[in-house]
Simulated scan of single mutants.
Amino acid sequence: MNWKKVGMTLGLSLTLVAAGCGGGGDSQEEASGTTPSSSESSSSSSTSEEASTTEQTSTNVAEELDYTITGIDPGAGVMASTQTAIEEYGLEDFEIQSSSGAAMTKALETAIENEEPIVVTAWQPHWKFTKFDIKYLEDPKGVFGEDETIHTMVRKGLEEDMPNAYTLLDQFNWTLDDMGEVMLAVEEGTPVEEAARTWVDENEELVSEWKEGVEEVDGKDIELLYVTWVSEVASTNVVKTVLEDVGFNVTLTSLQPQFMFSGLAEGEGDGLVAAWLPVTHGQYIDQFGDEIVDLGGNLEGASIGLAVPSYMDIDSIEDLMPAE
C-alpha cells in the first residue's frame, strides 16, 4: 500500500506545517461659490485624483501583499483554480504559497491580529468565516465557479459487501449550519470525537433518517478516507460515530486528495464523504470516476475562492492587479 504510506506522510507533514446637486437655479450656485464651469473643473480634478488614488491603492495592495497568495495543500482544486485566476486576471507577478489548511488559517489569524494585508485561498464551510471578519473577493470572470456540493462516494462492491453501511452512507446529508456547529466546537477546543458525539446525540431526528432501513452489525470493519480539512474532519467523524452506533468498527485514514481518490478506486478504502464537486476535486473524478460509485451530494452550498480581511479596501480579484 505504498500510495497510502506516501499519502499519509504528506498529509501529516502538511497538516503540521479576503468601496448634492442643488436644484435651485443661479442663486444657489452663486451662494455656494460655484458655477457650471467651476463645477466641471472641480469634477475633472476630482476624477483625476480618484484615478490616481485607485492606481496608487492597486499598486500598494500588490506590494503590501508581497505579491503572495497564501494557499493550502498543493493538490487541492482551489489551488489549481487560483493558478487559473492568476493567469486570467493578469496577476503573473503573484506567487501561490503552498502550505496546509492549518498553516493558512494561522497566517490569516496573525495578519488580522496585526491588521496586515493578506489574501488566502478559502472555502465554505469553514470556521474562519465565523471567527474572523473576512470576505470573499468577487470573481467577475467566474474562475472559481458556482457553489459546490460535497459528495459521498464508495468503492465498487460495497453495496454487496456491506449493504447496511452503503445505505447509511447513501442517506447521509446535512447542512452548512449543521457542519458549522461541529467545526466551531472543535475550534474552541473540544476533541473532534466528543464534538461529533454531542452533535449526533443532539440531532437524533436527522440521524434517524440516515439510519432508516439500516440493521445493526457485529463489529464489521469499514475504512473511511478523508482529507484533513476541518470541514471533512467534522463530517467524517460524525459519520464514523453513527456507523459505530450501529455496530461497525470504523477506521479513519487521512490522505492527500489524489491518494484519497486513487485509494478508493483501488479498493484500499471503503468510502468517503469529502468529495467537493464540480471544481475542487473534479480533476480526480476525471481520473478515477469510472472506478468509484458516486452516491450524490451530502451537503450543498460549498464554495471556494480568494478571501481577505474585511478591513482591506478591495472587493474584487481585479483589485489585486498592480497598476501599470
Rank of each mutant, 00 (worst) to 15 (best):
S100A: 13
H151L: 06
E324P: 15
G219V: 09
E181C: 06
G296S: 07
I72G: 05
L277E: 11
T54M: 13
A31N: 07
M104G: 07
G24D: 13
E193C: 07
A195E: 06
G297N: 05
M153L: 13
E266N: 10
T54F: 12
V230T: 14
T236E: 06
V143E: 05
G25P: 04
D290I: 02
P257Y: 07
L108I: 09
P140A: 07
D221W: 05
F259D: 13
Y226P: 07
I317G: 03
V217Y: 04
G213W: 11
W3L: 14
E300V: 11
E115M: 05
P36I: 08
T54L: 15
A76C: 06
L206C: 01
S52K: 14
S208E: 00
S38T: 15
L299F: 04
G71I: 08
V214P: 00
R155M: 06
G90I: 08
T236P: 02
S100V: 04
S48Q: 13
V6P: 00
A31P: 00
K128M: 11
L255W: 00
K4M: 14
P140D: 14
A122E: 12
D178T: 02
E88R: 10
I118M: 03
D315K: 10
W174L: 08
T130P: 01
E268H: 04
P117S: 06
P36E: 12
E324M: 10
E223Y: 00
E88Y: 00
Q287D: 12
T47L: 14
Q171Y: 00
S231K: 05
P74Q: 11
G297D: 07
A165Y: 06
T121K: 01
N164W: 10
Q83F: 09
S52M: 12
F144I: 11
I112E: 04
